[in-house]
Computed example of a mutant assay.
Amino acid sequence: MTTGIAIRHYTGDQAPALRPLLLDVYTEIYADAARTDPFASPDRFAEGLDHWTARPGWSCVIGYDNDQPVGYAYGAPLPPGSRWWGGLLTDVPADTITENGTRTYAFSELMVREPWRKTGTARRLHDTLLTHRPEQRATLLVDQDHPKVHALYQSWGWTTLGDLRPRLPDAPLFHAMLLGLPLAP
Rank of each mutant, 00 (worst) to 15 (best):
A94I: 09
T96K: 00
R117A: 03
D95T: 12
Y105L: 11
R117D: 06
R117V: 06
A94T: 13
E114V: 11
R103V: 07
T98A: 15
D95M: 08
A94L: 14
T104F: 14
Y105F: 15
R117S: 05
F107G: 06
V92M: 02
T102N: 01
A106C: 10
T98Y: 00
T102F: 08
E99M: 14
N100V: 12
G101P: 05
Y105S: 08
D95N: 14
E109F: 08
A106D: 14
T102L: 04
E114M: 08
T90L: 12
R117F: 03
V112D: 00
L110G: 05
V92T: 08
R113P: 07
G101H: 10
T102A: 12
S108P: 02
A94V: 15
L110Q: 07
K118R: 15
V112G: 06
T96M: 09
M111D: 03
K118H: 15
A106F: 13
W116S: 05
R103G: 09
T96S: 12
N100A: 04
R113H: 02
T104I: 14
V112F: 02
W116R: 02
T96A: 10
V112Y: 01
T96F: 07
R103S: 13
V112Q: 01
P93W: 00
S108W: 09
I97S: 07
L89M: 13
L89P: 06
R113F: 07
D95F: 03
F107I: 01
I97G: 08
T90W: 01
E99Y: 11
G101D: 03
T98P: 06
S108F: 04
T90D: 12
W116H: 07
L110I: 14
